[in-house]
Amino acid sequence: MIVRLRALPSQWTTAAPVLAVVLLVLTWGRSLPGAGVALVTLVLAGAVLAAVHHAEVIAHRVGEPLGSLVLAVAVTIIEVALIVTLMIDGGDKSATLARDTVFAAVMITCNGIVGLSLLMASLRHRVAVFNPEGTGAALATVATLATLSLVLPTFTTSKPGPEFSTSQLTFAALASLVLYGLFVATQTIRHRSYFLPLDRKGEVIDSDEHAEVPSTRTAVLSLILLALALVGVVGLAKGVSPTIESGVEAAGMPHSVVGVIIALLVLLPETIAAARAARRDRVQISLNLALGSAMASIGLTIPAVAVASIWLSGPLVLGLGATHMVLLALTVMVTTLTILPGRATPLQGGVHLVLMAAYLELAVNP
């Protein structure tokens, strides 16, 4: 990864996060006119691109796979805060918000980001190469978390409806934290080499020889600006959500489509970062971002909503419907077959993108 280290204060990547936060403060809680929505959307796009830049600076400073973890966790923490905030303000309409958002994140990351990364890398370099040991461990964790948190509530009988009882929700929350913690320790400490990119010979690439390593000061400044950019992205996405809701209702689409659109906006930084890594033939970094984001979304959201449910009066619906369970099962099966060889062609990328398209189609026309 080659990071151009010009003076940060003179870059638009410094101005965009600050402008996003300022605009967020000025527009928070207000109804926006058409021109205001257009301005917010423009600044939102700038904040997304700035977030990707600063995440790459930090990643190059701390090295992989910790660098991929920084962006995934940062986005997810703010996403979780947004979910809990909307649940508090949304009343009964928010009963399925956590489920819809988490499932959207899983589908977008495991099919959209994975498919796009594999397709780009294989078209540019003929075959996409990655480490099946680390990627397989990540997929196993995502599949377990998704099943425990999103599938089992549909079949439990302690409480009517696709909901967990208090003790079951507590178990799911603790299990999510334990599994996520174990994975992070495996990825960053005990088996770090499993999550590093591979060259064409299958050998680990531990660093980029021709890249200038950012200074500590630059990395710290990028960390601050990354946090500002992500706050701006999520906050501004929430600000334009009433406009999105109006458009969804006017089009006669289900309300859950709003969650899909918000998830697509929030996951833009990771999507762009993964695509850039795939173009550089660093597919393992792309997969770290995709599966790490899916894992963080479940592993941090479920404990957060479990705590929030203590003071939330409405129901907390976590169980998926039959259609979404089929999509989840198919995604896990296809991703397993994609990962096992450690190499992928454009076909595998296309299969994942078709699954992503199927999810979007069924979200709009259930």
Rank of each mutant, 00 (worst) to 15 (best):
W12H: 10
V22C: 09
V37R: 15
G46N: 04
A51H: 03
V52D: 10
V57H: 02
I58W: 00
I58Q: 08
A59K: 04
R61F: 15
V62Y: 01
G63D: 11
A81N: 09
I83D: 04
D89W: 00
G91D: 13
K93E: 15
S94R: 12
A95G: 07
T96A: 12
S122Y: 02
V127F: 10
G134N: 04
S149N: 12
L150R: 11
P153K: 03
S158E: 15
G161Y: 01
P162S: 09
E163Y: 00
T166K: 11
F171S: 15
L177K: 04
I189S: 12
L198K: 02
D199E: 12
S207P: 00
S215A: 02
S222N: 14
I224S: 07
I224V: 15
A227Q: 05
V234A: 10
A237S: 13
A237C: 08
V240T: 06
E245Q: 12
L264S: 12
L267R: 08
Q284S: 14
L287C: 12
N288D: 15
A296Y: 03
T301P: 01
T301M: 05
A304N: 11
S309T: 07
A322T: 11
A322P: 05
V332N: 05
A363K: 02
V364W: 02
P366N: 15
